[in-house]
Design a protein around this nucleic acid. Structure first.
Lengths: 170, 170
DNA sequence: TTGGAATGTCAACAAGGCTGACGTAAGCTC
DNA sequence: GAGCTTACGTCAGCCTTGTTGACATTCCAA
């Protein structure tokens, strides 16, 4: 009987899960965690005169070498003028290479140079280290939940892009 | 026997959890999810000529009415000049009230006006709705894991601020 | 009472978003 | 081949939001 009550209470808690209070905590956790998430790369980048925008470009060029400008635009969700400013500096600095397409010469295919891959390595090493620490700290089951909630929060349009990328892993 | 193998395989999977591939997926999930997380408030704000910075200020003034500028600075992690610009427009527009401190006249205590509380309601309703949908979609256990990983990702300095805020809930 | 520390404001600048307009080259369709 | 469309780059100009530096006010302690 007492056991039954406990279970009922527990079950009640699960049903009460979506109180505004719980949601608010999730929102604030997301806010503060994202700061930590970007903190290490931001430090590395600012030393070199780059910003978060450069990181995003480098990350996704590394993930999908040979991607076109248009494709990158749809992943990043910015305007081409905005991306172009970033890409121009990365190309000038010799971190990214832009090759005219062979099948369709209007397209430019983007690749990291050795120097670009080197910076990418630094950035993702730092970011993975923090993610690894958080994962280890929280445990395997928590990680599965983490991913599940995050994936449910992605906008439907982007979800397709995300899944394609996710499932193209090595 | 076959059951034993399955368990072993499963356990092996759990141990393999922290491959670079898994970490990369976590990183990208975080990136895309944060876009979704801010999308709804961003839409509401841009109609009114405000940005994400205004949202952050409004959110935390609502959470801790009477907070000082300095306190808000340490929560938001920006420079006071940056915050000041945002606060000035919110005060001019009658969404935030700034009262000179009684004990220490150097301090300004910040409050939402009725209009400010109204906007705050709109913003957090929208953000909670998305969070609620994601939570419901992912299930209670996933939510616990989500929170656990996020909390482990917060920078140590901010963690104290976060926990204080979290535990001050209604 | 005076000098330093703390709090907040103002000015100026940079990064990185945005829109709009335009040019060029290449592909596609009739 | 002519004309439309697509992909990309770029110029100009705007806004938000971050930065540093200089400054006024207030408090407090030597």
């Amino acid at each position: 009987m007492s056991e039954g009550r406990k279970l009922q209470a527990y079950s009640g808690e699960s049903l009460l899960f979506l109180t505004d209070e719980q949601l608010r905590q999730g929102i604030e956790a997301m806010f503060f965690a994202y700061r930590g998430f970007t903190a290490d790369p931001d430090r590395i980048l600012s030393d070199k005169g780059y910003g978060r925008a450069h990181h995003r470009a480098i990350h996704f060029i590394n993930r999908a070498p040979g991607t076109t400008v248009n494709n990158l635009l749809s992943i990043l969700g910015v305007t081409k003028q905005s991306l172009n400013r970033v890409l121009r500096t990365l190309i000038e600095d010799g971190l990214v290479e832009s090759r005219v397409g062979t099948a369709d010469k209007r397209e430019r295919h983007l690749f990291l140079t050795d120097a670009g891959a080197d910076l990418e390595g630094q950035l993702s090493d730092a970011q993975r280290a923090r993610m690894r620490a958080a994962f280890r700290n929280a445990g395997p089951e928590a990680v599965a939940g983490f991913r599940k909630v995050l994936e449910a929060m992605i906008e439907p349009d982007l979800k397709r892009t995300y899944v394609r990328l996710r499932d193209s892993g090595q």
